[in-house]
Amino acid sequence: MLMTPLSRLFTSSLLALLFILPKVQAQPVDVDAAKREGKVVAYGTIIPKIMGALHQGFEKKYGIKVEYWRASATKVMDRALTEWRAGKPAFDVLFAIHGAMLLMKKEGMFTQYIPPSSESFPAHYRDPDGILTSWRVTPIGILYNTELVKPQDAPKSLDDLLNPKWRRKIGMPDASRHTSTAQFLWNLQKVKGEKWLDFVKALAKQEPHLMESMAPVPNAIVRGEVQVGLTYLQYVIQQKGPLGFVQLNKFLTDSNDLALSSKASRPSAAKLYMEYACSPEGQQTLAELGEFVLSPAAPPKIKDAEKVLANLVFMDNPTPDQYKKLTAQFRQIFFGN
Rank of each mutant, 00 (worst) to 15 (best):
residue 10 F to M: 14
residue 254 D to Q: 15
residue 31 V to Q: 08
residue 80 A to H: 04
residue 182 A to K: 00
residue 73 A to Y: 00
residue 190 K to W: 02
residue 52 G to C: 09
residue 233 L to Y: 02
residue 308 V to Q: 02
residue 279 S to W: 02
residue 233 L to A: 01
residue 311 N to P: 01
residue 61 K to N: 06
residue 137 V to A: 06
residue 220 A to D: 07
residue 55 H to I: 03
residue 256 N to H: 12
residue 264 A to N: 10
residue 125 Y to A: 01
residue 309 L to T: 05
residue 16 A to W: 13
residue 21 L to C: 15
residue 259 A to V: 03
residue 103 L to G: 00
residue 134 S to I: 11
residue 77 M to L: 14
residue 253 T to N: 06
residue 270 A to R: 01
residue 159 D to W: 10
residue 306 E to M: 02
residue 78 D to I: 10
residue 168 R to K: 12
residue 208 P to N: 03
residue 323 Y to T: 12
residue 38 G to D: 04
residue 40 V to F: 00
residue 226 V to I: 04
residue 34 A to G: 03
residue 155 P to G: 09
residue 328 A to D: 12
residue 307 K to S: 09
residue 200 V to I: 13
residue 210 L to V: 04
residue 60 K to D: 12
residue 303 K to D: 13
residue 183 Q to S: 06
residue 44 G to D: 00
residue 291 E to L: 15
residue 272 L to Q: 06
residue 255 S to Y: 11
residue 175 A to Q: 02
residue 26 A to V: 07
residue 108 G to E: 08
residue 208 P to M: 04
residue 118 S to E: 10
residue 257 D to L: 06
residue 309 L to Y: 05
residue 269 A to E: 02
residue 81 L to V: 13
residue 242 P to R: 01
residue 232 Y to W: 05
residue 336 G to P: 11
residue 30 D to N: 13
residue 275 E to N: 13
residue 179 T to A: 12
residue 17 L to Q: 12
residue 329 Q to S: 06
residue 335 F to I: 07
residue 142 I to Y: 03
residue 115 P to C: 11
residue 122 P to K: 00
residue 192 K to Q: 10
residue 273 Y to A: 04
residue 145 N to F: 05
residue 321 D to W: 12
residue 24 V to F: 12
residue 35 K to D: 10
residue 64 I to M: 00
residue 62 Y to A: 04
residue 282 G to P: 08
residue 184 F to Q: 06
residue 114 I to E: 11
residue 296 P to I: 04
residue 249 N to W: 00
residue 78 D to K: 13
residue 57 G to R: 12
residue 166 W to R: 10
residue 318 P to V: 07
residue 258 L to V: 08
residue 104 M to E: 05
residue 285 T to Y: 10
residue 274 M to I: 04
residue 82 T to C: 09
residue 173 P to G: 02
residue 104 M to S: 09
residue 137 V to Q: 09
residue 23 K to P: 03
residue 156 K to P: 11
residue 328 A to P: 00
residue 149 V to A: 09
residue 312 L to G: 01
residue 85 R to Q: 09
residue 40 V to A: 06
residue 202 A to I: 05
residue 74 T to A: 06
residue 91 F to A: 08
residue 134 S to F: 09
residue 84 W to H: 11
residue 53 A to W: 07
residue 158 L to M: 13
residue 100 A to N: 10
residue 240 K to Y: 02
residue 330 F to E: 15
residue 323 Y to A: 12
residue 130 G to Q: 05
residue 156 K to T: 11
residue 270 A to T: 08
residue 131 I to C: 08
residue 49 K to Q: 14
residue 303 K to F: 11
residue 62 Y to N: 01
residue 134 S to R: 14
residue 45 T to H: 06
residue 289 L to W: 01
residue 36 R to P: 10
residue 163 N to T: 12
residue 335 F to Y: 15
